[in-house]
């Protein structure tokens, strides 16, 4: 059934191009621009909390020691740090973390997170309704290459025709394609390069990105501390730098040295054991 369908190409009305495809592109671009400027207007730069920043940095330092330090640090340095962080009485992670001055349930803080989401969700939902109300049931464009049946759901949302070739795109799908596909275009249009950020924000970014636990809102130090303490407690030390010397002096010398070292020890041990056995016999 579907195998015979592609042979008859559909003729798309030029006025669909003029009155549906192009307007939709224009609407999407304008909506994205509007969203961008609305975001800029609503954004307020509030300083990050000092206590919270310190706690996040402490956590990331502990994580660094756990992941990298166990290999990079000599054993006594690693163990000293481990004790400094996880010691039962005095360890930094064992102490009860100070509560950040700003409560996580602060309504303003929650508003902040919602603002961003709202700015994204509301226009998207609105647009989807508008598009499906005005432009539903159309086939708008044809992608210039054949696609498999699997893409039917993606490209022909809103048009339930089993016989229609998959490379035709319905209006609702065109909307989705535009929504995700316009990002690169907008970045060019708005000239938003990452180094245009002012120094202050950049600084806050690198100071605040503690990685550990939770998003920007509602960071709770106590469980993060506990988790990190357990992880660090379990970290095993194995120093990888020791091999650097052998690696540097080349395979031939390294093999000789290692053989000498390995050869020296077992001989001694074996000798000792023989002696003991003899004594027992006597």
């Amino acid at each position: 059934m579907a195998a015979t369908a592609p042979q008859t190409p559909l003729l798309l009305d030029p006025s669909i191009r003029d009155w549906v495809v192009l307007p939709m592109v224009a609407i999407m671009v304008l909506m994205n621009l509007m969203r961008h400027y609305a975001q800029q207007a609503m954004k307020d730069s509030k300083p990050i909390d000092a206590t919270e920043m310190q706690q996040k940095q402490l956590l990331s330092r502990a994580a660094r020691i756990r992941t990298r330090g166990s290999r990079l640090l000599p054993s006594e340095s690693f163990n000293a740090r481990k004790a400094y962080f996880v010691d039962k009485d005095k360890g930094l992670l064992a102490k009860k973390p100070k509560k950040a001055t700003k409560k996580p349930m602060d309504p303003m803080a929650m508003m902040d997170g919602m603002k961003g989401n709202m700015l994204y969700m509301v226009p998207n939902m609105l647009m989807m309704t508008v598009i499906s109300f005005f432009f539903s049931g159309f086939v708008l464009v044809k992608v210039p290459f054949p696609v498999t049946q699997r893409f039917k759901q993606m490209l022909q949302r809103g048009v339930d025709l089993a016989t229609l070739d998959t490379s035709y795109v319905s209006s609702l799908s065109w909307y989705f394609l535009l929504m995700f596909g316009l990002r690169g275009f907008l970045r060019v249009v708005l000239g938003e390069d990452p180094d245009a950020m002012d120094a202050n924000r950049e600084m806050q970014m690198q100071m605040g990105m503690g990685m550990g636990g939770g998003g920007p809102q509602g960071f709770d130090a106590a469980p993060a501390y506990k988790h990190e303490r357990e992880e660090l407690q379990m970290a095993q030390h194995s120093w990888v730098l020791e091999d650097a010397e052998l690696q540097l002096c080349g395979a031939a010398v390294a093999a000789r040295v290692q053989n000498a070292a390995l050869g020296a020890r077992p001989v001694k041990k074996a000798g000792a054991r023989v002696k003991k056995v003899r004594r027992v016999k006597k």
């Binding site: 010397e245 040295v257 070292a261």
Partner: peptide, 13 residues
């Protein structure tokens, strides 16, 4: 010392 050989090798390298 057992380490002498490695030490000399690193030094001459």
């Amino acid at each position: 010392d057992p380490d002498d050989e490695l030490n000399a090798a690193l030094g001459s390298l």
